[in-house]
Design a protein around this nucleic acid. Structure first.
Lengths: 346, 346
DNA sequence: AGCGCTTCGCGAAGCGCTTCGACGAACCTA
DNA sequence: TAGGTTCGTCGAAGCGCTTCGCGAAGCGCT
């Protein structure tokens, strides 16, 4: 920068003002500076800029450490956030999730990021409280109980469960299971899981059907065990809703029990449309546009940082059920004995 | 930091040396400093440190902009890299891919990162040349032609295609298609796609079977069109290998043509085991442990940066074929007319 | 001509840290 | 006891940028 000033014959500060545009500079001077910048292939030094100005032009995203390395929704948030961040000429700092609020605050306090995106939000989330009390900007993928002044984007899990139940009840199912998020998340107070559970319980009551609440890990092996147990213990259960990827284990368990989807058992899932369409049979369900959600969370935060938007922005993805091949009329009674449709594989 | 020095009654520089450990400090002094650090809840300022020392303790990862927002492999690299980076107390900066080498170099030149991880590597990759000439540390997920001094981790796509072909030939298939990466990637010189193509051509020749090379996008809709075209044009083709997620479209097309897997058509894929097992029928294929790959790429780079490892480390994931339900003996002749197994859905 | 006003350029003081060289004190060796 | 080491500590000079405040010049107005 000093070189540029020298070459252009201006003061160091003038170069800075040309580059930042924070004060007006006369055209001839500006042109000389810009020419020098070009010739010397100058690149501003990020840390120096951050040190002097106090803003890093960077946001941080905390990713829950993957129990099952392939929960695609969360990874898709990241992809969406990355795209939005790059598009706005910001940088995205990615960390594995710290449940500890301090380590999140520390990241901003250390001047590594201007704001934070949180995911896997709890109903009463200490991280949110801490960020709020520290006055650090943040946005959420998910929700807390107290949403005052909080920017967030979330799936309407309540609506999803509701439309799913209505659809199944309409098909005549009278006993439906909810494969909710894993037990540890529910216990921790993960908002989506609590909403799903509450709505599930109230809606089944309203519809006058039986609801079985089944907390269940996403990993196929775990989900298989849970599902197999359920199918054995609850012969009248003829349908299930899954809040996420628990359907993999469920489908395996159904296959193992030689139950056919949708003739013997119906499945509704909250899952990205791309995956729902990929399976055989394709899954009836509510689309969770995670890429968009990640994008929006990043944009909300950056808008706030740049002062473009003062107020909190809140967005709930509407729950629209797409009926595909995995749901059908309730069977008279679920077959519990094996009835072969085809020679068993392998 | 000045406050700490004052409180502990030592010089500013002494505080720095206590914190960095780069010079020895007597125990009483050190204790006083550490106590002050604790009391004042001091947190070093990243950018200031980076400015003074020249190292940011950060690595950057360039993620190809997702054509189809849900190519899970690439997202899984990111997850793996994130975990390894956090575990080593480094930060991960995520950007959407710049094909332009300059913008990559700029990121390091601007002092935002100490090193770079590249993915979607081309056989002659200008980004690699540029990074090498600039002397910036990097590691690759993928390979270039010239691997001298380059740290990388990659899947053995050649071996995968080979074992896949051998398996299919052993089952009696005499005409096999390769659903390779999309045409634009092949044209750009994406290494994996070139290796897959070359090995496919030479191995089919050696086995004395017919090979049909089909470049194909991952997006289900595109892949469907390509697959449907192939099935129509090539009635003797009874099996296919896909290098990635093209199988989604392929399976749809097979279903649409009422061809049964594996009775009428066999499918082999390179895909994470978790997904392969999830489908009906489960997919025979070679596992691509992308999480591990991302982890390793990050570790290689960080080891290099910290001086732990001077030499380049290179790792090729071995191609081991797992036979599942999607491959079977070649049919006498592929049925081209619809033969119903079940009432058509919808 | 003189007034206040805005516009534009300059110098200098940091931002919070690292690191070099210097200096005193304590420790050896002869 | 003098000379040479080593150890522990300090002060100060940056790292590359932003930004404040000052002053010089130019403007329209009375």
């Amino acid at each position: 920068m000093a070189q540029i000033a020298e070459r252009a014959g201006v003061a160091l500060s003038t170069v800075s003002y040309v580059l930042s545009g924070k004060r007006s500079v006369s055209k001839p001077m500006r042109d000389r500076v810009l020419a020098a910048v070009e010739e010397l292939d100058y690149r501003p030094h990020g840390p120096a800029r951050a040190l002097a100005s106090g803003a890093t032009h960077t946001i941080a995203l905390f990713m829950p450490s993957p129990q099952w390395p392939l929960v695609p929704v969360q990874q898709t948030f990241v992809a969406g956030a990355t795209q939005a961040t790059s598009a706005r000429d910001y940088a995205l700092l990615l960390s594995t999730a710290a449940t500890d609020p301090e380590s999140i605050v520390r990241l901003v306090a250390r001047g590594r990021a201007d704001g934070v995106i949180l995911m896997e939000t709890l109903r009463d989330d200490p991280r949110v409280d801490r960020l709020r009390s520290a006055g650090y900007p943040f946005s959420l993928i998910g929700r807390t109980a107290d949403l005052d002044g909080v920017s967030y984007v979330d799936m309407d899990f309540g609506g999803a469960v509701e439309t799913g139940l209505d659809h199944l009840a309409g098909l005549g199912h009278t006993c439906v299971a909810l494969f909710n998020f894993p037990p540890d998340l529910i216990e921790a107070g993960y908002t989506a899981s609590l909403i799903a559970r509450d709505v599930f319980e109230s809606r089944t009551r309203e519809l006058g059907i039986r609801g079985i609440h089944v907390p269940c890990a996403h990993a196929p092996r775990d989900a298989f065990a849970v599902a197999a147990g359920l199918l054995h213990a609850e012969p009248e259960c003829t349908a299930a809703i899954t809040t996420g990827w628990q359907f993999t284990g469920l489908l395996s368990a159904l296959r193992a029990a030689d139950l056919h989807v949708p003739d013997d058992f119906s499945v509704v899932s909250v899952i990205a449309a791309q995956f729902a369409e990929m399976l055989t049979p394709s899954l009836t369900g509510v689309d969770w546009p995670a890429f968009e959600a990640g994008r929006m969370a990043a944009e909300m935060l950056i808008d706030r940082l740049t002062g473009k938007e003062q107020a909190a922005r809140q967005y709930l993805t509407p729950a629209e059920l797409v009926v595909r091949e995995s749901t059908g009329p309730a069977p008279r009674t679920r077959r519990s004995t094996a009835r072969r449709r085809r020679a068993p594989a392998g």
